[in-house]
């Protein structure tokens, strides 16, 4: 760590500790726990480990950011653990908001064990657009080809998964037929399943499918970001095709409800500096991720935008669930 950065972080720490006037020692004076709701080896884990390693450079010396995987129930176990953690600023977590919100809306915050709107947001890590994919050998080349179909099979992991959720949202918004082939164990199983023709289309977010599109095995039909991704400059967005739909996977850094504002602010500062480290940016580029750094405000906005999108589609989701 460089000396100026170190002393700056220390100054901030001292100041915030002083202003809040409640703690004997300045925040933070011990390690920060970072909860990942998924197992090591996945995207959430990789982002967390990378950011945490850079983030601790911008915290007082001796304060480490310790990443812990709290897994189970499709990411909900870890999210609940974060929700119930002591709100003292020493626990944060990278939430899969797109996975949590529909469940919460469906069963209610009490039964879900968390309320996404009550987390204290620290920052926005990434908003990766969903992409509609098909095997390149299939004759589906454009939205018009899809619309001409009376029957279209969609591959999903399982009902309740984010691939399932966004398949429903995309199919409804684009007015496409939809029938599921389900039960796959993740993107690693879905790429070969798509290529061997188990189903016709599927939707994915994150970098895992990018190499297969580049190699000509998969075809990206439509992307659902605000603007075109750098990986797919030639693939149209839904917006360009006249559909007002932005669907992105949200990776938002959060703290438990009731975390003091000054502690959250300090963590936001360290987080944003970490996201700006050249070494971190190099990792993002090399691994074909799409970072979209933002602070507390951007994270909160992203969460509430997504919440509105889900509310718009709760009826569709309920209908699909009823039919099963």
């Amino acid at each position: 760590m460089t000396k100026p950065a170190c002393s700056l972080a220390l100054t901030i720490a001292l100041l915030t500790g002083f202003v809040s006037g409640e703690s004997q020692a300045a925040f933070p004076d011990k390690d920060i726990n970072w909860i990942v709701p998924y197992a090591p080896g996945g995207g959430f884990d990789a982002w967390s480990r990378q950011i945490a390693a850079h983030m601790q450079k911008h915290l007082p010396p001796g304060v480490n950011v310790v990443v812990r995987n709290v897994t189970g129930a499709g990411g909900r176990t870890g999210s609940i653990a974060l929700y119930r953690a002591k709100p003292d600023g020493y626990t944060v977590g990278l939430l899969d908001v797109a996975g949590l919100l529909p469940y919460q809306k469906a069963v209610g915050a009490d039964k879900a064990g968390f309320d996404v709107e009550k987390y204290v947001w620290i920052g926005r890590v990434a908003t990766e657009p969903w992409v509609l994919l098909t095997a390149a050998k299939l004759p589906l080349k454009s939205l018009a080809d899809l619309k001409a179909r009376k029957d279209l099979s969609w591959g999903i992991e399982g009902p309740g998964s984010t691939k399932w959720l966004f398949a429903i949202i995309e199919a409804r918004e684009l007015a496409l037929p939809m029938r599921f082939v389900s039960g796959y164990g993740g993107t690693g199983e879905m790429v070969p399943a798509s290529l061997r023709g188990d189903f016709e289309v599927w939707t994915n977010a994150g970098p895992a499918h990018i190499p297969y599109v580049k190699s000509g095995d998969l075809r990206a039909l439509i992307q659902f970001g605000e603007k075109r991704m750098s990986a797919f400059p030639e693939v149209p967005t839904a917006k360009e095709l006249g559909h007002d739909l932005v669907a992105e996977i949200l990776r938002l850094l959060a703290a438990p409800p009731g975390t003091p504002a000054d502690a959250a602010k300090l963590l936001e500062g360290a987080f944003l500096k970490a996201m700006n480290e050249p070494e971190f940016k190099a990792w993002v580029e090399k691994s074909q991720q799409e970072a979209n750094p933002g602070g507390q405000k951007e994270a909160a906005a992203a969460a509430s935008n997504f919440s509105r999108l889900i509310e718009r589609h709760m009826k569709d989701i309920a209908e699909v669930l009823r039919k099963q």
Binding site: Q50, I210, P211, S215, D217, W283, K286
Partner: peptide, 12 residues
């Protein structure tokens, strides 16, 4: 997963 952590995005 370890390769992703090291900045690879393994594909074909």
């Amino acid at each position: 997963g370890a390769l992703t952590l090291h900045g690879f995005n393994p594909g074909p």
